[in-house]
Structures are given as C-alpha cells and as structure tokens.
Amino acid sequence: MAERAGEPPAAGAGAAAGAGAAADTEPAGAPLVVLRGVNKHFGDLHVLRDINLEIARGEVVVVIGPSGSGKSTLCRAINRLEPIEDGEITVDGEPLPEEGRALARLRADVGMVFQSFNLFAHKTILQNVTLGPVKVRKVPAAEARSEAMDLLERVGIASQAGKLPAQLSGGQQQRAAIARALAMRPKVMLFDEPTSALDPEMVQEVLDVMISLARDGMTMVVVTHEMGFARRAANRVVFMADGQIVEQAAPESFFTAPSSDRAKDFLSKILTH
C-alpha cells in the first residue's frame, strides 16, 4: 500500500477511503495501476498536467470533475487509447508498451466500458461477450460460451443473448458491455462515464451492476457524475480540474468538506440543481 512507503498525500487519502465507506476487501499489496508524471496535450490544450496517481488492488476510485477537466483522457490513458507524451503508466508493475502485440496483451487485462457502449454492431450480444476470450485468450468456443452466459445472467440480460445490440435498450447494452469486459477476467476495470448516455430510468440498473462488482473486490476506475455511486461504492474520490488532480479524499470527507475552492464550487453546482 502506497502510504506505508510514505508516498504522496493522494495515496493517504485513498487509504482512508479504503478503511471507510464500501468494500469488504481491504486494498493490499503493491499498487495495481500507477501513473507518474503523466502529461498530454491536445494541440495547445494541456489536458493532463503532471498526473501522479496510484490505484491499489481492489480499490474503487471515482474520478469527477467539470467537463474538459481531463478525467476521460486520464481513464483512456490507462490502457493507452490515448497515448501520453510524458511520464509513465504501469499496470500490475508493467509499463505500458508501445503499439503492438505487447500492448494488446496488456489491454486484455484492462477492461474498458465506454460512455456509448461500443458493442460490436454486427455481432450478437453473446458473440460480443465471447469474442475476446476466444480470439485473445484462446478459450475453446464452448467454454467461452457457457462463461459468457453466466456473465450475461449476472448482469441480468441472459435472455437477450441472441439479439443484435441495436435491438437492446441503452441500459441493457451497457450491461452487456460490462459483461464483455468481464469476460476477459481483467485485473482492473475502467469506466468512462458509463451512465452519461443513458436515459435516466436506465441509470440505476447499470449502477447496480457496478456496485455489485465493487463489492466483489474488482479494482475499478470510474469516471462519472453519479455522486450516489461514489458515496456507496468508492474508496476514494479524485477531483480533477484543468488537467490536474486538485484534490482526493474518501467520499464522505470529499462531499461534506472539500478542501479546495474548485471542488467546493463544482460540488455546489451539481448538488444544488
């Protein structure tokens, strides 16, 4: 655990969260995901500024912040969907490789759930879930299939297995996308605003799946505006603005007593409306 080695205050806050709010499993051992001195520009825009962040095994980190703060970019950088210019990112001790097979291998261990689901439009729900295990993990088709059905059962859409994505509701699609990511047995799951594209009535069914995942001890990085989820499932809240991590804390202390003005301002805007 980071703070034992006397690491940045960020990690200390994480530990506090770990002791507090949600998970049954205690974060332990070396950090699973480490970002050190990460910088990235989009043209003139400095979207990630000197990001340092460690995520422990089993930890659930919620990243919040105003739009354009760089939180999505941060999330996508962890599996190199966004390459970074400067700094280092390691997953389970391994630095992110350049493009190529090594990167593909590493990505297989990092599950990703997108805002717009991104289910493969030309494949059925079941095929979406089995594709990764069969093509990447080389799991025999029958085995992949039965595991996929279990996962679909778990996210509550086993009856939709034979349908194409376009035939499902948004909430169902996002749950299928979570099942697809889980099928790879990832070490960590990244959620990039997983409920932002959903109709309000479907948000909860997706959050429920995510909460149960957190309870089962999955390491998760979740970019979201769902403060309820953060309170119920997160070990730590990371608040970003202008490409920087402004503050991080356990959910309760963050929501009740944010220390920075930016966070206070942000919270006042989203909590009062």
């Binding site: 991104n118 289910l119 697809r180």
Partner: peptide, 15 residues
C-alpha cells in the same frame, strides 16, 4: 464508428 475499433483494441485484439 471509432468506438468500435476502440472497443476491439481494449479487448486486446491485435491490429
């Protein structure tokens, strides 16, 4: 849609 290829890549598919 670029998301299709991103989803494929994040599953660990090679190029």
């Amino acid at each position: 849609q670029p998301g299709q290829s991103e989803a494929g890549r994040s599953l660990g598919l090679t190029f």
